[in-house]
Design a protein around this nucleic acid. Structure first.
Length: 292
DNA sequence: CACTTGACCTGTCCGC
DNA sequence: TGCGGACAGGTCAAGT
């Protein structure tokens, strides 16, 4: 799944649904997805309530009143969906076209948290995702979190600072550097392609060849697509759903991602798909000129 | 250190 | 229709 806008959408959903409710039980149809000792689960999860839900890059922290946290990474196909029997209208019914999941648990369900009467399902078709239970201070110090660059939507980040983050990756294609979470946190394959199209930069352009004005444009476009996507509840290509099981609508606004052969809205040339940094990459060869 | 490639898994789609 | 291969929102480890 999940790049910054999708994780942020899940965070907001859980933030509205979880705090104050007590974890009372657990099912683990695929135990490896939850890295936690049963003794720690009994002491620091069960009987405790959520106090806050935070996002760090593409990771989530569910802070508990025990001083411990559930740390979640959804990787490619992870979902966190809360089903509340008190509010069945939240889930599926009414807008079935918005819902991608019903009848949980299903065969991708890896962990089920019982939270009062409600159920929080961790589904993950490809099993790349994980959940850990750790003391909050320790969770924040996981290598993955310590290594993160500034959040792509950090309020205090300026265009000048944005450009400076890329210095040490001067030999990389700009797309590879954008995907590097230690440079800047939160950008993934979809929004890298969309932002590079907006800034009219070829994805394979070496960082060292970019001009200051191009970094300015990239910074502006990146934030624009991330904000728009959050407004739209994220991107659902295949699996992604929010905390209520609903898909995101951003791909209706996407210009290049998953749109090979469709016309570029700037110049009407067909969008092309190539491979950059080992990832499928969509761009307009007319608007985003390659520089040798 | 910077950079690239393949591996982790399951499911789906495309071409023959 | 069937089958094999490529590919899918992300990281990591290992290689050069």
């Amino acid at each position: 799944m999940p790049e910054l806008p999708e994780v942020e959408t899940v965070r907001r959903g859980l933030s509205a649904l979880l705090p104050g409710r007590i974890f009372v039980g657990l099912d683990r149809p695929w135990p490896a997805s939850l890295q936690a000792d049963q003794v720690m689960i009994d002491r620091f999860l069960l009987g405790h309530a959520t106090v806050a839900v935070r996002r760090l890059g593409k990771g989530l922290l569910i802070d508990l009143d025990s001083g411990w946290s559930l740390v979640v990474h959804l990787k490619m196909t992870g979902q966190l969906v809360l089903v509340d029997p008190q509010k069945p209208e939240r889930f599926g019914a009414g807008h079935p076209s918005d819902s991608l999941v019903d009848n949980l648990p299903d065969r991708s369900t890896r962990v089920v948290f019982h939270i009062g009467d409600a159920r929080l399902y961790f589904n993950d078709q490809r099993k790349f995702g994980w959940i850990k239970l750790l003391p909050t201070a320790e969770a924040e110090k996981l290598p993955f979190f310590l290594g993160l660059g500034p959040d792509a939507l950090a309020l205090e980040l300026t265009a000048k600072e944005f450009a400076a983050l890329f210095q040490r990756r001067s030999g990389s294609p700009i797309k590879a550097a954008l995907l590097d979470q230690t440079v800047i946190a939160g950008v993934g394959n979809i929004y890298a392609d969309e932002a590079l199209w907006g800034a009219a930069i070829h994805p394979a352009t070496r960082v060292g060849r970019l001009e200051p004005g191009e970094f300015d444009r990239l910074f502006t476009e990146l934030r624009k697509v991330l904000h728009l996507s959050i407004e739209q509840g994220g991107s659902t290509n295949r699996n992604y759903v929010d905390a209520e099981g609903k898909r995101g609508a951003y791909l209706d606004f996407a210009v290049v991602y998953n749109r090979k052969g469709k016309p570029c809205p700037r110049c009407s040339a067909p969008i092309e798909k190539i491979r950059v940094a080992g990832r499928g990459t969509h761009y307009c060869s007319t608007c985003q000129k390659e520089r040798i």
